[in-house]
Design a protein around this nucleic acid. Structure first.
Length: 148
DNA sequence: ATCAGGTCTCAAG
DNA sequence: CTTGAGACCTGAT
């Protein structure tokens, strides 16, 4: 589906959300909508329209124990509410880099708001990149939520 | 067993 | 202000 920063893709598994892909440019829309996909899209639009919207979707997440811990923490963050890698690391008794690794592995950006994790000085990275179009999307999201 | 990451901190220039 | 080294924990090979 189209998004202000480009486009957004949705992959379902057993009617549950498995993967979200963020694209910097518009893509040809995929027109086969199941009921579950439609609901995901509905919530996506709601969020894109109003940053205060909070997702409530069934997820099909696969990851290590550590990754799940980090993702669980992230899900408790409300829009515009930022944390640093170091902060999360202390709360989970781990290291900042390990947190970064888990964020990088996040399959469902926006729903698990890895974009709300920033470096102590600087913005950090997004989707495996520290510069380039991915970072432009992170910036857009932060602006959208009115974060600094 | 090794290496590279979405980092942090601290000590020098 | 800028740089560099070391510490840090995980995931992948």
């Amino acid at each position: 589906m189209p998004a202000p920063f480009g486009a957004l893709g949705v992959v379902m598994r057993d009617d549950r959300l498995a993967t979200i892909t963020l694209l910097p440019r518009a893509a040809d829309p995929f027109t086969r909508h199941g009921r579950a996909v439609a609901e995901v899209c509905r919530q996506m639009q709601a969020y894109l329209k109003d940053p205060r919207f909070e997702f409530d979707l069934p997820l099909a997440l696969t990851g290590t124990v550590h990754q799940r811990k980090v993702w669980r923490m992230l899900r408790r963050l409300t829009p515009g509410n930022l944390v640093t890698y170091g902060d999360l690391a202390r709360r989970l008794h781990t290291s900042a880099r390990a947190v970064g690794g888990a964020c990088r592995a996040n399959p469902v950006p926006l729903v698990v708001p890895c974009h709300r994790v920033v470096a102590k000085s600087g913005v950090g990275g997004f989707m495996g990149a520290t510069s380039g179009p991915e970072m432009a999307i992170k910036q857009w999201l932060l602006d959208h939520e009115g974060a600094r």
